[in-house]
Simulated assay, not measured.
Amino acid sequence: MSALKIREIQKEDNQQVAEVVRTVLVEMGVPKVGTAYEDQALDDMFATYQQPRMTYFVVEEKGKIIGGAGIAPLIGLEEKTCELQKMYFLPEARGKGLGAQMMDTCLKFGKANKFEQCYIETLPYMEGARKLYARSGFKSLEKPLGDTGHYNCTMWMIRDI
């Protein structure tokens, strides 16, 4: 068993985290506009998540970042709803149960920060992610919530926490 650990992002993780997110988005054929690919936050995730009620977790294996996910207030519904953000894993991280562990870590953080619901935006062809979300109790919505700016993300899900 390799030494995998989930921990909060550190400043020195910024470049690796941006590479993980962009690598997975390119692999999945995600549009580079209207998605996380073009988010300015991607190049300084550490600073982005140093705000109240938000954090970004990474999965590290032998010093290499192989995945991550963030949790933050959903813009427009900040009081009660958090958003799971930028949850991406490199191929070597998949199929090991890390998605479920990361989801659990993020939802616990959301609950501890007094959020009542968690919201996710995704894409129709990200089937593995959508299956994980459904297994984790997320239900599909008819339309988006809040104001994420990700107009190319056409699937929306939510669950109580």
Rank of each mutant, 00 (worst) to 15 (best):
S2A: 12
A3C: 13
I6D: 04
I6N: 00
R7E: 06
Q10F: 14
K11Y: 11
K11M: 07
E12K: 15
D13S: 01
N14I: 01
N14S: 04
Q16A: 10
Q16L: 08
A18M: 12
V21F: 02
V21W: 03
T23L: 01
V26P: 01
V26S: 11
E27F: 01
M28C: 06
M28G: 01
V30K: 06
K32M: 06
V33Y: 04
V33G: 04
V33A: 12
T35S: 11
T35Y: 02
A36D: 11
A36Y: 14
Y37G: 00
Y37F: 11
D39N: 04
Q40P: 12
Q40L: 15
A41K: 09
D44A: 09
F46K: 07
F46S: 05
A47Y: 11
T48Y: 06
T48N: 09
P52N: 09
M54W: 00
M54V: 04
M54F: 03
V59H: 01
E61K: 11
K62D: 13
G63F: 10
K64H: 12
K64A: 09
I65F: 00
I66N: 10
I66G: 01
G67Q: 02
A69T: 08
A72D: 06
P73H: 09
G76T: 09
G76M: 14
L77Y: 06
E79V: 07
E79I: 05
E79P: 15
E79Y: 14
E79L: 06
C82T: 05
C82W: 00
L84Y: 07
L84W: 03
K86D: 05
Y88K: 06
Y88P: 08
F89C: 06
E92I: 04
A93Y: 00
R94T: 02
G95D: 08
G97S: 10
L98A: 09
A100V: 03
Q101I: 08
M102S: 05
M103T: 09
D104S: 14
T105V: 14
T105D: 00
L107P: 04
K108I: 10
G110C: 07
A112Q: 15
F115L: 13
F115H: 07
E116P: 10
E116R: 08
Q117P: 06
C118W: 00
C118K: 03
T122H: 12
T122E: 15
T122C: 14
L123P: 14
L123V: 07
P124G: 07
Y125S: 13
Y125T: 15
M126N: 03
E127V: 02
E127A: 13
E127D: 15
A129I: 02
K131P: 00
Y133M: 09
Y133R: 13
A134Y: 08
A134C: 12
G137N: 11
G137H: 01
F138P: 04
K139C: 02
S140T: 13
S140V: 13
S140H: 11
P144F: 02
D147I: 14
D147H: 11
G149M: 13
H150Q: 11
Y151Q: 15
T154K: 14
T154F: 05
M155H: 12
M155L: 15
W156Q: 13
M157A: 08
I158S: 03
I158C: 02
I158M: 04
R159T: 13
I161A: 00
I161Y: 01
I161V: 08
